Simulated scan of single mutants.
Amino acid sequence: MVSKKKIMTSVATSVALASIGFTTVGQVAPQLGSNVQTTKAATSAINDYINNNNIQPVSITNEEGTFSYWNGYENGVGKPEGVVIHETATPGATARNEVTYFNREWSNIYTYVHAFVDNNEIINIKNTDYTVWGAGPTANAKFVQVELCEVSSTDAFARSVANQAYYTASKLVQYNLPFTPGVTVMSHNDVSKKWGETTHTDPVGYFAKWGYSMDQFYDLVGKYYNQLKGTTNGGSDSGNSTDNGNVINVANSNGSFVPLVAFQDDGSVKNVSNRGLANNTPWYTDQVKSYNGVEYHRVATNEWVDASYIK
């Protein structure tokens, strides 16, 4: 049986997947997605494991739980601003165990989240058009919230984070939200630091146990986000660039991968030396910039592709 949860909050406030991914450059292991800080994500053994073993997320099971509050977000019903990532801190408890526990005990522990994820299941127990009690009053009024169950093997961990990343991406797409790490996808640790209403640091410590990080998780979310967007237009994060909202197909006729660049603080571009896009793959792009007469399309947080590679 699971223990009392670490995410106590105030009662008062309450698919078919496309084949897509990064390719390897030099000695860096292949990466799986976009929207991530490159230097950290490039060392992810877990993401490599998911990629190399062709691990696919499971489908989302929706079953309404017992949480009886039906409050809209601060912007209204069906208008969340992103997703908060939790972990349960209960080793060995499955998503089904957690669902049973929370449905029985939420009125005593004053805590509830939208979904639980393990290596076998994604169980959504609260309509995500409405708020839950998981991360403090401010975050509760803004975010969908999902808990990752603690597992005991590398394979189970890889499958569980793939499921959690897929759930996260699916909610961003469902609500037409951009994928902006640290803004539309936040850890509970991020929430604690930003608003100071809780002191929890999950899932950082649990991720570290597996040599994993939020940056590497963002990479995985980016992969599924791009896959799920398909030809669906979506929003973009703010900036000085043009919102282009579409899907591009890229290929390099003179090489085995499509190179990327990153924009520097002075507006210039620098080659991304350890990552590239696989030839003949589709990518969602939301912004366009120009430098020295060259047009670049954004495919990740600060990773851009020269328009000459667009088919």
Rank of each mutant, 00 (worst) to 15 (best):
V2F: 12
S3N: 12
K5L: 09
S10M: 01
T13M: 08
A16V: 05
L17P: 02
L17R: 02
S19H: 13
F22H: 07
T23E: 13
T23R: 10
T23A: 14
T24E: 15
V25M: 14
V25D: 02
T38L: 06
A41N: 05
T43P: 04
S44I: 08
S44R: 12
D48A: 13
I50C: 08
N52H: 12
N53Y: 11
I55T: 07
Q56R: 14
V58R: 13
E64I: 05
V77S: 06
K79P: 02
P80W: 03
G82L: 00
V84L: 09
E87M: 07
T88P: 03
A89K: 11
T90W: 15
A93V: 14
A93T: 15
A95K: 10
R104D: 14
E105D: 15
Y110F: 14
V113Q: 13
H114I: 04
N124S: 11
N124K: 09
I125C: 13
K126C: 04
K126Y: 09
T128Q: 09
D129A: 14
Y130H: 09
Y130A: 07
V132Q: 11
G136H: 08
P137R: 05
T138I: 15
N140K: 02
Q145E: 14
V146L: 09
C149N: 06
C149W: 01
T154C: 00
S160K: 11
A165M: 11
Y167D: 07
Y167F: 15
L172C: 00
V173Q: 12
Q174C: 03
Y175L: 03
T180P: 00
T180S: 04
P181I: 01
G182H: 01
G182L: 04
V183G: 00
T184E: 00
N189Q: 11
D190H: 13
D190P: 05
V191N: 07
G196F: 01
G196A: 00
E197C: 11
T198F: 06
T198N: 10
T199R: 09
T199E: 08
H200M: 07
D202E: 11
P203Y: 06
G211L: 07
Y212E: 03
Y212V: 03
Y212D: 03
F217I: 01
D219Q: 15
D219R: 09
G222P: 10
Y224G: 12
Q227K: 02
Q227S: 13
Q227D: 02
G234H: 01
S236D: 08
S236C: 08
D237G: 14
S241C: 08
G245S: 15
V247Q: 14
I248H: 10
V250K: 08
N254I: 03
V258S: 05
P259T: 06
A262K: 12
F263A: 02
F263Y: 04
Q264V: 03
Q264H: 02
D266N: 14
N271M: 03
V272L: 06
S273W: 05
R275N: 11
G276M: 04
Y284F: 15
T285M: 08
S290Q: 11
G293C: 00
E295V: 07
E295L: 10
E295M: 10
A300Y: 00
A300P: 00
T301G: 01
N302H: 00
V305K: 08
Y309A: 06
K311R: 04
